[in-house]
Computed example of a mutant assay.
Amino acid sequence: MENITFDQLPQAMRLLHEKMDRLELLLSENQSPQDKDSIFNVTQAAAFLHLSVSSLYVKVCKREVPFNKRGKRLYFYKAELDEWVRKGRKKTLAEIQEEAGQQLLGVKRKA
């Protein structure tokens, strides 16, 4: 990576913006709308989440996982399952310590 001078900054930003546009285009081409709207049955959803079918039923009964029910059948949207998994992310110890440090700095500044 080369060093960029202040005078070269506008051109570097333009190139960066063009590369980001190309990346967005590539990502949107690779992700078909059909993937977002995929509907899973219980067996498919359990396989997608790497759970047993019985474990998935337990999560459904406790309303821990998003689902749709039509009659006696359960259906799961792939996008909703993806979002559910993402929301379950736990912070690392380093992230918690960083947040605590930021909070302490904020308290000290107010005092």
Rank of each mutant, 00 (worst) to 15 (best):
M1L: 08
K72F: 01
I39V: 02
E24T: 15
Y77G: 07
L27Q: 05
E98A: 12
P66R: 02
C61Y: 14
L25G: 04
V58K: 15
M20W: 06
V58Y: 15
S55G: 04
S52C: 04
Q11S: 09
G71L: 01
E64I: 03
V58H: 15
K78F: 05
Q103C: 12
L74F: 01
R89L: 15
D21R: 08
F67C: 00
P66C: 02
K90S: 11
S52H: 03
D37S: 07
F67L: 04
R70C: 05
E80W: 10
V53I: 08
F67I: 10
E18F: 00
L16Q: 09
E99L: 02
S28H: 10
Q102I: 14
E24A: 13
I4T: 07
P10S: 04
G101K: 12
L25T: 09
L104A: 10
P33L: 12
I39Y: 01
T92L: 06
S54T: 07
M1I: 11
E95H: 01
E2I: 14
K69C: 02
M1W: 09
K110F: 03
Q44M: 03
A79E: 14
Q31K: 11
R109F: 10
A47I: 01
G88W: 15
E98Y: 15
F67S: 03
Q11E: 00
P10Q: 05
S38Y: 11
G101F: 12
R89W: 13
P10K: 05
F76A: 02
